[in-house]
């Protein structure tokens, strides 16, 4: 009995020590997050209740002003549309590609590299390529001319096609990254599960449905959160493609933030940032739920 208690004591001690070790490793990162993200965000929340220069308390006036601001509504709506269109597309396409790539086969490495390559391309170079493709005398118009026989001078980037072009840019840029995340998830699934399933007569679709997807639930949450985060970064591409006032379909919250900063409307930026965080909470919660249920599964 004594022996058993001693063992438990030692195990508890070891667990405590490993927690401290983990804490030590996490501390610098945690400090960074606290110092450079959490504290500034608290300041942002504070500023959302103050005037532009932070001199006087204005209560909920900024929230009322931003909520009623047409530009904010339009930017928020477009941002939401972009999430709705781009994130699921990225999610599904990158998953499909990772499943393809995961199977051993000829040209797999080349395929993988070609998908990951856009990640390392500078945004400016990428935007330039897309502009060359879609400007009035660009390749796309020349291609259309070759097919239809009539001259095309459509400025695709500044017209109604701006939204699909931006979604395509986002997919092209991020698909490789998400694919790598899926691949990491796939490689963590024990091969024995597939072997057992095959012995039981399960085909490919059944393996996907009953093994792969349930086992990837943890990765799903991570990919979702990272895809949403990355979708905010699409402003860079949007700005480089179409300038600070693009076609209204791709006018998004970062555009508005950028303009508000130019006119020193920090109170509005802070308020909109709080709105944005509040709106992101469900996505974060859903992602967390997915990861948890993945772990429990």
């Amino acid at each position: 009995m004594k022996n058993c208690l001693g063992k438990m004591e030692r195990r508890r001690k070891r667990q405590g020590q490993s927690r401290i070790t983990a804490g030590c490793f996490l501390a610098p990162s945690l400090c960074g997050v606290l110092l450079f993200q959490a504290l500034p965000f608290l300041d942002v929340v504070r500023r959302s209740f103050l005037d532009a220069m932070g001199r006087s308390f204005v209560g909920m006036a900024n929230y009322a002003a931003v909520w009623g601001n047409e530009a904010f509504r339009m930017a928020a709506k477009n941002t939401l549309y972009f999430f709705a269109a781009a994130v699921p597309a990225l999610y599904l396409v990158s998953l499909a590609l990772s499943l393809l790539v995961y199977r051993p086969g000829a040209g797999q490495r080349l395929f993988k590299t070609s998908l990951v390559l856009p990640m390392v391309l500078p945004a400016a170079a990428m935007a330039l390529v897309w502009r060359i493709l879609f400007c009035p005398d660009g390749l796309w118009n020349q291609l259309l001319y070759a097919f239809t026989g009539k001259p095309w001078e459509q400025d695709w980037v500044h017209g109604k096609a701006a939204f699909p072009i931006l979604v395509s840019t986002y997919l092209w840029k991020n698909i490789g990254y998400d694919m790598l995340l899926w691949l990491a998830g796939l490689s963590a699934i024990p091969q024995s599960l597939y072997d057992a399933a095959r012995v039981d007569g399960a085909g490919e679709p059944a393996q996907l449905r009953y093994i792969t997807l349930p086992c990837l639930q943890g990765t799903m949450g991570l990919v979702l959160v990272l895809s949403v985060v990355n979708s905010f970064r699409v402003y860079r591409e949007a700005y480089l493609l179409a300038g600070s006032y693009p076609d209204l379909s791709i006018y998004m919250l970062p555009h508005l933030f950028s303009h508000w900063f130019l006119t020193l409307d920090i109170q509005k930026m802070s308020t909109a940032a709080v709105f944005l965080v509040l709106a992101s909470l469900p996505a974060w919660g859903f992602g967390r739920w997915l990861r948890r249920s993945g772990k429990e599964g």
Partner: peptide, 24 residues
């Protein structure tokens, strides 16, 4: 000569309206 006056005016107006809305 690629657009009508109405199209150009509408496009400009919508952008200006957005710009003005930003400042409200």
């Amino acid at each position: 000569g690629k657009e009508t006056l109405e199209q150009a005016v509408a496009a400009i107006r919508s952008r200006i309206a957005l710009y003005q809305a930003e400042q409200k």
